[in-house]
Design a protein around this nucleic acid. Structure first.
Lengths: 240, 240
DNA sequence: GAGTGGTCTAGACCACATG
DNA sequence: ATGTGGTCTAGACCACTCG
């Protein structure tokens, strides 16, 4: 199901063409005027598509030259931005399973509500899941889902992707998140639930996720075994 | 020295106003038409400024409502994007020093040239620096700078900021980087140079940095003591 | 219905790169 | 001189929110 916006269609076509190596790395795309004519749109619409290509790391623009295709081979999995465990693992095609070990109603813990400046009596669903890769327990996810939007979370869906459930079934639109990455000493729960091989630390990712209308929907504490953590980023200087 | 583009001026003014709490969190900015009139520009120009505010996490836009100011208090330091150690530490106002322990010419190590698909005989300056925070050695930075652009690196400048030197003195424009974050076992060099307190792992950040014309300029391997590593990210779903 | 942001157009002028 | 991308304009129509 392709997007209906003109600029998104152009973006998707060009991105696909680059993925399929129809443009060589280091070579320019066709010029903005060419593309505008080719797609029968105004130049600004082409530029909107190219802006997205630039932001997603497909191309680099150079005044006077053109839109040069970048080498993307280093993105063997895309983790810049909002991506869930499920989306991530399907790219890597690993044998992964998820075990739900908690799915109950409670209020947002004080530690979190204070941090977010929210009411401490916010009703949430507390989900705890252990992620297995090749039969080893390597990640613990603690999710707190605002009951206001997620009345219940079928355990079957939690084993799959809660994003899928929230977006497809509940019609919610996830929009943005703040994420914080640290490395912290293991807790008792880590030792009980993960196959740690004697590790003393885990990578901890804390994120608060919001909807289009800025409403809070989810807080997640994700604890990763050190050797299974990897984060790839594409960063640009903020001048354009 | 403010930017000369209209949209950047508007961006900067609005960002400053938000920083100074002239708009309350959750409240909308003035409408796009208002702002266009106020600044005497077209609406598209206002929208360009607002797009940047959105991308940098200042606001959230809602069709039919307005541009709502987001809570930014959690960004106690801005690390999303391209930021150097120096820039980072000045924000936190810590007592930091840098000791340069290597500054010599060589060719790009095979491990790196292969990874980047570059010639293995690329001449570089190899810089090794130890970063101290409150008199503790907590970070090792290994930089490989393309001699093509950086003929030499004065040790004095390396103790400060190599970005400053490259951008202000050499007139180079750094544009984008790929970064990869992992956690790895400590090496002999880590043990020799860092105050590890018995840690068995370090956070490793590998990045390849490029100029505006996509040319390679720098490869960095940055090794952080676990407790001194922290990364903050603002992520958006890719639909707009 | 009035006001908001989202998309798109057709045209202008500027800055940069290249032959 | 020509072609490229960068900025900006004035206007149009659509989609959404709210009183």
């Amino acid at each position: 199901m392709a997007s209906q916006n003109k600029f998104m269609k152009i973006y998707e076509e060009l991105a696909q063409a680059i993925d399929e190596k129809k443009y060589r790395v280091g070579e320019p795309l066709r010029s903005e005027n060419d593309l505008a004519e080719q797609y029968n749109v105004s130049r600004e619409t082409v530029r909107k598509a190219l802006r997205r290509l630039r932001e997603t790391g497909y191309i680099q623009k150079q005044q006077g030259k053109g839109s040069i295709v970048l080498d993307q081979t280093r993105f063997d999995f895309p983790v810049s931005g909002l991506t869930s465990f499920k989306e991530l693992m399907t790219v890597k095609a690993k044998a992964t399973t998820t075990k739900v070990i908690r799915n109950e109603e409670q209020v947002l813990p004080l530690e979190i509500s204070k941090r977010l400046g929210m009411r401490s009596d916010t009703p949430v669903i507390h989900l705890t899941r252990v992620r297995f890769i090749d039969d080893e327990a390597v990640i613990i996810d603690d999710d707190y889902l605002a009951k206001e939007f997620v009345a219940e979370m079928p355990t079957k869906r939690a084993e799959d992707s809660i994003y899928d459930y929230m977006e497809k079934d509940l019609g919610l639109t996830i929009d943005f998140a703040h994420k914080q990455y640290t490395v912290e000493p293991v807790t008792l729960e880590d030792q009980q639930l993960l196959d740690l091989h004697g590790d003393t630390h885990v990578v901890v990712v804390r994120s608060d996720v919001h909807l289009e209308n800025t409403a809070f929907i989810q807080y997640t504490i994700s604890r990763h075994r050190l050797d299974k953590f990897r984060f790839v980023d594409f960063a640009r200087r903020q001048n354009k």
